[in-house]
């Protein structure tokens, strides 16, 4: 039951860009160095985050990435679902395939409640919570 490097690095990228206080764009090279993550890998994650509207890129000399949303509006659960895909702890049943009664029971009595627990933890957390410990009063872009 692991969060992949894609999800973990994506979150660290957002944290790094947000901690930059919004003045000048941050390059992936800087993030890669600070976060000790390979730049080509970071690039793939940055593309997904840009397409989804979490960060925007500034072209040219002095270019790089800036946050595109207020940190209080970035839910950790949404970022992870974007980068990881399906966050449920087991795959959905294959349509038409027989499931053993034990598996069906576990789905109902363990896996589905566990999925809800995980979603609750991740969806009540925003990037602002991570940066400042609370969402209150941090509506500004990338403070």
């Amino acid at each position: 039951m692991k969060i992949s490097t894609r999800g973990r690095y994506g979150l660290r990228l957002l944290i790094d860009v947000a901690q930059n206080r919004g003045d000048s764009p941050v390059t992936l090279r800087e993030i890669a160095e600070r976060q000790n993550i390979s730049e080509p890998y970071l690039e793939q994650v940055a593309i997904a985050l840009r397409r989804a509207g979490y960060i925007r890129s500034v072209k040219g000399a002095g270019g790089g990435y800036l946050c595109a949303l207020p940190a209080a509006d970035v839910r950790v659960g949404d970022v992870l679902r974007l980068l990881e895909g399906d966050m449920s702890v087991v795959d959905a049943p294959i349509p038409g395939a027989d499931e053993s009664p034990y598996r069906a029971t576990l789905r109902e009595a363990l896996y589905e409640p566990l999925d809800r627990t995980i979603a609750e933890v991740l969806d009540r957390k925003t990037l602002a919570d991570l940066l400042y410990g609370s969402s209150a009063g941090y509506g500004d872009y990338c403070i």
């Binding site: 039951m1 969060i3 973990r8 979150l11 660290r12 944290i15 950790v76 029971t105 576990l106 109902e108 009595a109 363990l110 409640p113 566990l114 627990t117 995980i118 609750e120 933890v121 991740l122 957390k125 991570l130 940066l131």
Partner: peptide, 28 residues
């Protein structure tokens, strides 16, 4: 900063899976 979230998530998962016994599952 990210690590705190993972620790919190890990604790929530542990609390959930430790709160369900095999007897609970047998009753279900």
């Amino acid at each position: 900063i990210a690590q705190r979230t993972w620790v919190e998530l890990d604790r929530a998962i542990a609390a959930r899976i430790d709160s369900v016994s095999l007897a609970d599952l047998a009753r279900a």
